[in-house]
Amino acid sequence: MKIIVDEEKCCGAGQCVLIAPDVFDQRDDDGIVVLLDARPPVVRHDAVRECAAVCPGAAISLDEDA
């Protein structure tokens, strides 16, 4: 799995960080998403899928085959 984030669509809600703090963080100055791990381990895939699903800016997309 490879994670792709669209910084322009990110609205800084931090929902992804609440669900997967080991994969996502936010910049201190403007809250935009910081990708800590673009290729998370398999055990984290379900959490990452939930992040992509609940992102209110639809800013997280996943390449499941990568």
Binding site: G12, A13, G14, V17, L18, Q26, R27, D28, D30, G31, I32
Partner: peptide, 11 residues
């Protein structure tokens, strides 16, 4: 207000 990360931390 212009503090997204900090706001989330106070959630």
């Amino acid at each position: 207000w212009r503090m997204p990360k900090q706001t989330r931390l106070h959630r």
